[in-house]
């Protein structure tokens, strides 16, 4: 898995690429934008080709930590395979999911101010 971080104003976009499973999920927490619980992030899942339950656990864990610190985690550009994992596990209710990264960034920015 590769993690690319870019900033758009106060929001960090974390683009994930490759496989997120039990062997790669711990890397996610090492990413500075993810580890900093105060920072709102948009996680771009477009290039994720496989996600298992540990990967999902890492994302849910990130969401929980950031929500406690009043920061947001938004997901964007899920491909149908990844969406299916969110769908069957009922985790869609936990996240705000966008089909466009810039829309997600705008949403995060406005909701941070509000």
């Amino acid at each position: 898995m590769t993690i690319t971080e870019t900033s758009d104003g106060s929001i960090t976009i974390v683009a994930l690429c490759g496989t997120i499973d039990s062997s790669t999920a711990p890397e996610l927490h090492k990413s500075p934008a993810i580890a900093d619980t105060l920072r709102s992030v948009v996680i771009d899942l477009e290039k994720v080709d496989f996600l298992d339950s540990s990967g999902l656990g890492a994302l849910v864990g990130t969401l929980r930590l950031k929500q406690e610190a009043k920061a947001a985690v938004l997901l964007s550009c899920m491909n149908p395979r990844v969406r299916k994992v969110f769908d069957i596990t009922g985790t869609v209710k936990l996240f705000h999911i966008f089909d466009d990264t810039s829309a997600a960034v705008e949403y995060a920015a406005t909701h941070n101010e509000g």
Partner: peptide
């Protein structure tokens, strides 16, 4: 997917 709290504007944003 949508979030249970989404309004119409959010639906449009999320599916931009």
């Amino acid at each position: 997917n949508l979030h249970p709290a989404d309004d119409q504007q959010q639906l449009l944003d999320k599916n931009r």
